[in-house]
Every structure is written in C-alpha cells, then in structure tokens.
Amino acid sequence: MDELRENSASVIPLRVIANEKGDIRHALKASEATFHGFGEAYFTTILPNHTKGWKMHRRMHMNLVVIQGEVAFHVHNDKSGVTETFVLGTDAGIYGRLHVPPGLWMAFGGRDDEPSLVLNLASIEHDPDEAINVELATYPINEAD
C-alpha cells in the first residue's frame, strides 16, 4: 500500500475475491485512513483517448475506483509543482482506489478501446461552489505515463 501522505494522492490496492459466478471487488471501508465520511457515490464515463479535467475540490475527498476499462488519473499539486500519473483499471495488478484529498488538481483520461467507467465515493455531496475548473492546457500531462 502506498504510504498515506498529507496533501498527496495515494493508490490503495483493493482486494478481489474470486468467485466462479463472478468476482467480488472491494472499494472502500469506513475503517480505512482515506475514509473521510460519505456524501455521495456517483459514476462517470470517459471515452477512449479523451481527457476530462482539470478540477480541484476545496472540501471533497475523492475515492476513485475504475469499474470498467483503464484510466490514467493525473494529479497536480500547486505547492510542489509536481504532476503525478496513476493508472488504474479492472485488470489484475492495476485494480485499486485512488484517494485525492482536497486542494489537488485532477484530470483523467480513457486508456481502453471502449468507454471506461469510474466510481467516485465522495466525502461530501456535490456542491458546484466548492470546486474550481480550469482549462486542460493549464498543467502539462504526459500521455505516455
């Protein structure tokens, strides 16, 4: 498990329980350090070779799980000037949950041949006044990551 660092995004490997009739995939437990309350759960799709973002939440902790496909999440920290890329998906080895605390910018892009599906287990309900959006060109993204 990646060390939980304040003001940094972190990937938490998730458990997959094999079942002959269909696997069981964990997402988030209230006992985990990255759980900061529950506001809402919602799904978003991302088309192949498209990128959504940049968005920064002032109060929301995002807990992002790729339910279908493969997605590159780009997280930019204004304080350090560093942009990190985390690739998650349903394939073995990249199934996990990305925790993005408030104050970090996030963009994400579809890396599969079909649309990908992402679940956000958000710490607060959607509030359009607590998030800031900027143009995609604002921060560099290395699509090769």
Rank of each mutant, 00 (worst) to 15 (best):
D2N: 07
L4C: 04
N7K: 07
A9V: 10
S10N: 15
V11A: 02
I12R: 14
R15H: 04
I17G: 09
N19G: 08
D23F: 07
S31L: 14
G39P: 05
E40W: 04
A41M: 12
Y42A: 03
T44A: 10
T44W: 10
N49V: 11
N49S: 15
K52L: 05
K52G: 04
K52I: 02
K52E: 03
G53W: 11
W54S: 04
H57E: 09
M62W: 09
N63A: 03
V65L: 08
V66D: 00
I67H: 14
E70G: 13
V71A: 04
V75C: 07
H76R: 02
S80M: 01
E84A: 11
T85P: 03
F86A: 10
L88P: 01
T90F: 06
R97V: 11
R97C: 15
P102K: 07
L104D: 06
A107F: 00
F108H: 03
L117G: 07
V118T: 05
V118F: 01
N120F: 01
L121P: 03
E125G: 13
H126R: 15
D127R: 14
P128W: 06
D129R: 13
E130M: 09
E130S: 11
N133H: 12
N133T: 13
N133V: 11
V134D: 08
E135F: 03
E135H: 04
L136V: 01
L136E: 01
P140Y: 04
I141L: 02
N142C: 12
E143K: 10
A144I: 13
